[in-house]
Design a protein around this nucleic acid. Sequence first.
DNA 1: TAATCCTTTCTTTTT
DNA 2: GAAAGGATTA
Length: 719
Amino acid sequence: MQDPILDPLNNKQREAVLHTEGALLVLAGAGSGKTRVITYRFAYLLREKDVKPFNILSVTFTNKAALEMKTRISNLVGYDLSNAWIRTFHSTGLMILRQNAELISYPRDFIVYDELDSKALLSSILKDLNYSKEKFSPQLLLEKISSLKDENISPERFQSMISSNFEEVVYKVYDEYEKRLIKSKAVDFSDLIILPAKLLNENLRVLERYQNLWQYIMIDEFQDTNTSQYELIKLLVNENRNICVVGDDDQSIYGWRGANINNIYDFKDRYDAKIIALEQNYRSTPVILEAANSVVVNIFGRMPKKLWTENKYGKKIKIYEASTEKDEARWVVEKIDNLLGEYDYKDIAIFYRTNAQSRIFEEELLFRNIKYKVFGGQKFYARKEIKDVLAYIKFVVNPDDWASFERIIDIPKRGVGEATLTKIRALYDDGFSLLDIISSAENLERINRNAVKSLFELSEIIKDLNKNKESLSPANFVKILIEAIDYENYLLNNEENGKERWENVEELINSIKIYESGKKNPTIVEYINDITLQTSADEIGDESERNYVSLMTIHNAKGLEFPVVFVVGVVEGLLPHSSSRMSEGEINEERRLFYVAITRAKEELFISYSKNRMNYGEVIECFPSSFIRDIPESCMEWEKKAFSMRKLSTEFPTKDNNYLEGKKVENFDEILVGMKISHNAFGVGTVTFVSKNFYKVNFENYGVQIISKNNFSGIRILS
DNA sequence: TAATCCTTTCTTTTT
DNA sequence: GAAAGGATTA
């Protein structure tokens, strides 16, 4: 008897699918059919257990993964599941908030701030609190504040933990940030998780409603959950504990965003979960697996596991040491050129550590006329003109939103400069509504006539559109908006590359139309929030149309697989990245990142690096990543003999062996040009350059290296 | 207030 | 080397 759901599974996978009642932890190694287990388990619940689709909550991290899961399950069960709860963490949180907005005293139409909105808000707070932007960058503060929020630490609680001047500032900014978010009726990304948890904690009846609704819960990539996400999940699990989480500690690469690997261990104990380990790999060749395993095998505290495969041996990993970045790019693209024919464009991917690395490969691909697509990087939605339009939409939807107001008020030019803005701010702080202020701007001191007139016109436009936000389709809404403010003319006459920018706006409208076509009754409110939660990883289009070589960061590559993979720029300073060189934990996360990159490859893997690279417009010397050293020689085939490899493999210092006597650095401002220092990885060198965030050191054995200032535990001053 | 030039800073990774 | 910010001037 054929069973379309159970037959294609191996024993372990089947065991996981059949275990539907009670908690389950699936430890799924790379390429072990994790997605398959989740989709088949979903289908099994529907078919055999008669569970209704809406009684299952499935949570993933990216929209792309959610969409793909939806499609795969729909195909498996043969009917449409577009209304099933298959969502990201953040969109689940958004939905809970939206459905219960009144319980946290927000209007139903509150809006979501993306990272750029949050940074803009922080930068205006810094200005108002008179803190210099140099010392306290919005970027850094946002990181601190987000990680506090992700750890469920409120400003009040943080206040009692302050132990430095810097933290004092963080506290003040954090406190103000929260207040202004509330005043603007806005939530940030972290709020999408912590506010629902708060709401459910305080309203037991609402909590029960969700607990009853979601009889079965599944979480993908569980190793990436942070504290607040786990808290939310704990609330949602009802007394039946039908929760299945799937994860792999070796693929934990979001520690920097608060992901807490302990959640896996805690889960096991808290719910007395059954554990099933999937170790058979269906994706890669044994050579690739062996190399991957050797990179992570020595990580302390790792859950021991060994992936195995029935796949045949395959080709060795090709490694190339280039003399320049250009040389490296040329080698990679030449290889790709040769592979085309045997492989399709869509079979090939280039992975790098940082977005900025893509450019030189793009140039070379362009030169050879090879179709490619870069994922991530300068995102479409981060473009100025797009942000302007989105800010307009946000402001129309929610005219209390200060950050959006500040952005749009003088676009197009209305003669509102800093002076006028400060006056408006004061009134806003006194409780006047922004719309009231601008519709009677003549009350502002020393404002010119034209400004008063154009502000009044703006207020009318906003009011009018706000009234129609439910009835207009998103695309029409935006068209009317853009026409009303004459944005096209503004771009064409006032902005550099105005034509290109206008084309981007037109593309935005097109994308809104596409968005509309997939929805029943789309509204602009829904659209603006969906788009805020959209990310670069989501762009990865559907399989059939992928007629290009894919370029992306390793982080973006997670969850994907390609027959041919190039991992480029594998040098000390990039992988591991210079900002994570100081602690064992950070280095290990970089290690796992390399592991993730390697395990994406199905058939052929190429690794390359260059001995020099451009940094801030200056050439610096590079050394092969110490991670390469971990791969057994028998797995590799050097395309070009790496002379520097020998040196590094014998001399690369381990964690503690290179400390010399000297003064421990306790504050990064202690490091000055000309000092002789010792570094726990590079040994002794002389400081040649110091800036706000990093400094450069000319090391005796490793040449000029960039050292990040954000961690100084391994540095000693010698003289 | 707006436009232009010059200086400074910047590079992790992202929901 | 690019992009963003700041200072300078009209």
